[in-house]
């Protein structure tokens, strides 16, 4: 017993002499706040599809995306580089959680617009929350006149709708993944056997290779497919390179298009058969 008392006394005295370490006091006094996880993905796209990331308040981003033709077209087409599908887009942060965007793809002369809202954030520390959720909705209109002149398509008949729930988790600073349940509605389909509504699930990952380079992959599996085309699930691999205000994404994908309604439901390329489109996304934030 005496020994214990002696120990406590010595502790008490030493405490008097040296004081509590000041940094320990500061640690104790640090307010315990939830820590929002940032940079789950580097860009607003994983590769073809959207990531949970939004543009911040009043930030304007200009995105140019390209997908070239199929690599297996061979030398005559310079491995697909002779063909290209381009999408220009302006995307703007209405606030930190809501982004609006407008784009135009050369493929089928399609205009698209979208809203993306960040509903829940991943947090650690106090009041932690394990994943982030964003909601995405878009409308696209195909303006290519690929119909019979007698059977003219109306504006409403040229519309496509997409709804997505983006659920992502940054597991560690170097690994993030995202699950993306997707619903696509087409007002017009080619043949009666083609569904107007298509359901799909996306899986995307990001692996950081270095501070500014990451390796991304993205796969969308569709649960029902168009019968009029040999539709295939979309698969893409790519590299993100970040430099100051830019993010470059270099992409290999079996889809030539860059908007949800197309690459999820209309891809026909067989990735492992060499139907690979090389492409890139370049974004500049103002």
């Amino acid at each position: 017993m005496k020994k214990i008392i002696l120990t406590i006394f010595i502790l008490g005295i030493s405490n008097q002499f040296f004081g509590q370490d000041l940094l320990d006091i500061l640690d104790k006094e640090t307010p315990k706040t939830a820590n929002i996880v940032t940079a789950t993905f580097k860009g607003t796209r994983i590769l073809n599809g959207h990531s949970i990331e939004n543009r911040k308040d009043k930030e304007l981003e200009f995105i140019i995306s390209h997908r070239f033709g199929r690599i297996n077209l061979g030398f005559d087409e310079l491995f697909g580089l002779d063909q290209s599908n381009i999408r220009f887009a302006l995307e703007y942060g209405l606030n930190d959680n809501l982004t609006i965007g407008f784009g135009r793809s050369s493929f089928e002369k399609t205009y698209d617009s979208f809203l993306k809202y960040s509903l829940l954030k991943q947090k650690n520390g106090e009041n932690s929350f394990p994943f982030a959720v964003s909601l995405f909705g878009s409308v696209a209109v195909k303006t290519l006149k690929d119909y019979d002149p007698i059977d003219k398509r109306t504006f409403a008949e040229s519309l496509f709708y997409v709804g997505q729930v983006l659920i992502a988790r940054k597991v560690s600073p170097s690994f993030s993944y995202q699950l993306t349940p997707t619903y696509v509605h087409r007002n017009t389909v080619r043949i009666i056997a083609d569904p107007h509504d298509i359901f799909a699930l996306g899986l995307g990952t990001r692996i950081k290779l270095s501070k500014r380079v990451s390796f991304n992959s993205e796969y969308y599996v569709a649960f029902n497919e168009s019968q009029s085309i040999d539709a295939r699930n979309s698969l893409a691999f790519g590299i993100d390179i970040e430099t100051g205000g830019h993010v470059f994404q270099l992409i290999l994908s079996n889809a030539i298009t860059m908007i949800e309604k197309s690459f999820i439901t209309e891809s026909t390329g067989d990735f492992f058969g060499g139907d690979i489109h090389f492409g890139f996304n370049i974004s500049r934030t103002f």
Binding site: I5, F9, G12, Q16, G19, I25, L26, P31
Partner: peptide, 20 residues
Amino acid sequence: FLICFLFIYNTNSQEQYLTK
């Protein structure tokens, strides 16, 4: 014990100044 604890917890509280 009580006296000991007093010793430990009575360390110069008025001599520390803090901002958060």
